[in-house]
Amino acid sequence: MLDKKKSKNRMKSEINAGSMADIAFLLLIFFLVTTTIDVDKGISIKLPPWSGTQLDEKVTTNSRNVFSVLVNTKNEMLVRGQLEEISLIKNRAKEFIMNPSGAKNLAISPRSAIISLKNDRGTNYKTYITVYNELKAAYSELWDEESQELFGKPYGEALTSVQKKEIRDRIPFILSEAEPTEFGD
């Protein structure tokens, strides 16, 4: 009996917490190693619904309202029938959409502007993404400018969804993608 009492007394003594830090460190290192902080970012797009026909619909709109971009297997770009550098596409698209000088061969209004993108099956994915990105960038810059003019704020989180919708109504993002050609696959 005496023995038992003694051991009970001993149990009361504190647990050594000195190794707590080591245990926490071990766990920490485990999570440090397994963590992959890769945020999922990318260009979000909405595909057109499948209509059942693979044939291109003939565009009946006025050709001055169409900004056609063709990318071939050599990753060269033809913008409205003219060979173009990738870095210049954005500004050309912006000028085409807004048509500030009222030129006869550019879009009548931002609402009627259509961007048509066509690539080949042999086009590099990287080039395609860069071109798509530039076209999207043209629109987001125009939205920014419009937003500054209307609300005095850049387009983004600062605007309400109604304000955003108004801007997108004024300058709608219309990009139509044609079926790719099959020269280099």
């Binding site: 999922d40 970012k41 595909l47 993404i129």
Partner: peptide, 18 residues
């Protein structure tokens, strides 16, 4: 893309780095 359209999955995201 064609397969996704046929399957009715129209929201897509091309993953990219900044």
């Amino acid at each position: 893309k064609t397969a996704l359209r046929k399957a009715g999955q129209l929201k897509i995201n091309y993953s990219a780095r900044a």
